[in-house]
Amino acid sequence: MKTWLITGCSSGLGRQLAEAVAARGDQLVATARSTDSLLPLCERYPETVRSISLDVTRAGDASKAVALAEHAFGGMDVLVNNAGFGFIGAIEEGEPSEYRPMFEVNVFGLIETIRAALPALRKRPGARIVNLSSGAGIAGSAGFGFYNATKFAVEGLSEALAQELGPLGLKVIVLEPGPFRTEFLGRSMAAAAREIDAYAETVQARRRYRETNDGRQAGDPAKAVAVILEAVDATNPPLHLPIGPRAHATAERKLEAFRADIAAWRDKSIATDFDALN
C-alpha cells in the first residue's frame, strides 16, 4: 500500500488519478484549492482518503498537506504535481498580468510543493515524484509559447531533480500527456485578451482549436491513469513518459529536427575550442 499526495484533484487527470488511487486501496491526501468537490471521495473511502485545501501559490499550504499525510498515514510515498493551467496567445499578445500567474502555479508552485515534500519522501526508499508536464513541454508551438515555457521549466527541473534523488533511491517521472478528454481546454485554459491580426494564420488557429475541441479530445483519461499507475509501480520507471499518440509524434518530430540541426552545423559548431599550442 502506497500513500499519495496529489495536487489539483478537483478535475481532469488529477481527479481521475485520485479516484483510481483510492479505488485500488492506497492511502491518499487529495488536494484542491476548494475541498468541496473532494467530499464525495472522502465519504466513499473514509479510512484511506483525506482532503485538504492546497493552493500551490500560497505559502505554507504544501507543508500542511505533507504534515497531514504524515499524521494520518505515517508518511508518504508518491507526490503528484498535477495542479496547473494553460494559456493561449502570441508572445506579443500576452500581458504580464495574464501569463505570470501561470508561472506561479505551473513552475514556482510545483517547486515549493516538491521542497515541502522532500523531507518526508526521503524517509521512504523507493518514493516517487510525478511531475505533470505536457506534449507542450517537449516542443514549442505558436500560440502556446508561455505555456511551453512553464512546461520546459518543469522538464529541466525534473531532470536535475532525478540526478539529485537517484542516489537516495527516489525516482522522478515526468508525464507528457497529449490531448485527453478532460476540462483542460475549458476551465483550465486561459487566453490573451488582445488579438493581433499579424498572427491570424498561426496563433488564432490555436484559439479555434480550443473552441472546437474542448470535450472532443481523442485521449481516454482512464487509460492514461492506468499507464501512470503502472509507471509509478515499476521498479525502474521512465524519467520521461509521453502519453498518447499525439505526444509520441511530437517527441519523434522534435528528436528528428534536433538531430538534423546538430548534424547540419556539427563541423562548424564544434570547432570552437582554443587552438592547441605547438
Rank of each mutant, 00 (worst) to 15 (best):
K2Q: 10
T3S: 11
L5M: 10
G8A: 07
G12W: 01
L13N: 01
G14Q: 01
A18R: 04
E19N: 05
E19S: 00
R24I: 08
V29D: 03
V29T: 03
A30E: 03
T31G: 06
T31D: 06
S34Q: 15
S37V: 07
E43W: 09
E43C: 12
E47A: 15
R50A: 06
I52K: 02
I52R: 06
D55I: 04
D55F: 04
A59W: 07
A59G: 07
D61A: 08
S63P: 01
S63Y: 05
V66M: 09
A67Y: 05
A67N: 05
A69F: 06
H71W: 07
A72C: 08
G75P: 01
D77F: 07
A83K: 00
G84S: 06
F85V: 01
G86E: 04
A90T: 04
E93A: 06
G94V: 03
E98M: 06
Y99R: 01
Y99N: 01
P101G: 07
M102N: 05
M102R: 04
F103E: 01
E104H: 11
N106T: 01
F108M: 09
G109F: 00
L110P: 00
I111E: 02
E112N: 15
T113G: 02
A117S: 14
L118M: 10
P125F: 14
I129E: 04
I129T: 00
V130W: 02
N131E: 08
S133W: 01
S134V: 02
G135K: 02
S141Y: 12
A142Q: 04
F146V: 00
N148Y: 04
K151R: 12
A153E: 02
A153Y: 03
E155H: 08
A160Q: 08
A162W: 00
Q163A: 13
L165E: 09
L168W: 13
G169A: 12
K171E: 13
V172I: 05
V174E: 02
L175K: 00
E176L: 05
P177E: 10
P179M: 13
P179E: 13
M189Q: 11
A190T: 07
A191Y: 04
A191C: 11
A192M: 03
A193L: 11
T202C: 12
Q204M: 14
R208V: 10
E211L: 14
E211T: 10
G219K: 08
D220C: 06
D220E: 09
P221Y: 09
P221R: 07
A224N: 00
V225S: 01
E230I: 05
A231D: 09
A234Q: 12
T235V: 13
N236T: 13
L239D: 05
I243L: 15
P245Y: 14
R246K: 15
R246N: 13
A247V: 06
H248A: 12
A249R: 15
R253N: 13
L255Q: 12
A257I: 11
A257G: 12
F258A: 12
A260L: 13
D261Y: 09
A263N: 11
W265G: 08
W265S: 12
I270L: 13
D273H: 12
A276T: 05
